[in-house]
């Protein structure tokens, strides 16, 4: 496969990931992950592993199911108001492409969030460890390093960024 083709496939995958979040297709989004896949947002870019450390998110598929169950529950009071996000993903750089098809890729994202009448912005770097799946790719690790990770949170993050 040419580099260009690989670049294209990976970019399309990353766009799809963001689109599933923005369109609230939570189940389809969690299914992007391998059975042992992890979604991780460290509080600080210096962290090397999600394991055994403070984390804003460090979720396997089971915890993702809890979060999804919460936001879909009719009594998730804080989810009731108008709420939506818009991701833009760019600066996609393939860091490693292994012979077996596994890929390590970084990109930059910008997420605008609307909640009630309040707008917030979150931005930073994605690092994806992707494995070749039957159809396209699956996420073994999605690391989200937010530029505003250490800043005080005005309200909280309810869903994955």
């Amino acid at each position: 496969m040419s580099d260009l083709q690989l670049q294209h496939d990976i970019e399309q995958f990353l766009y799809r990931q963001a689109e599933l979040l923005d369109t609230k297709q939570w189940q389809a989004w969690t299914e992007l992950f391998t059975a042992d896949g992890i979604y991780w947002m460290p509080p600080d870019a210096s962290y090397k592993t999600w394991d055994g450390q403070p984390a804003i998110f460090a979720e396997d598929r089971n915890l993702m199911a809890v979060r999804m169950g919460r936001v879909l529950h009719p009594d998730a009071w804080s989810q009731r108001p108008l709420w939506g996000t818009n991701h833009v993903v760019s600066n996609v750089v393939i860091r490693k492409a292994a012979k077996n098809g596994d890929v390590e890729v970084t990109s930059r994202f910008h997420m605008m969030e609307l909640r009630r009448d309040d707008v917030r912005h979150f931005a930073g770097q994605y690092t994806h460890h992707l494995v070749k799946a039957k159809k396209g790719y699956a996420i073994r690790l999605q690391r989200v390093d937010m530029t505003n990770a250490q800043a005080a949170y005005d309200y909280v993050l309810q869903v994955w960024v």
Partner: peptide, 14 residues
């Protein structure tokens, strides 16, 4: 600490 008290808290959000 992570599940209840982080800025992505599953509890304190409400």
């Amino acid at each position: 600490y992570n599940l209840v008290n982080s800025p992505a808290t599953l509890i304190n959000a409400d």
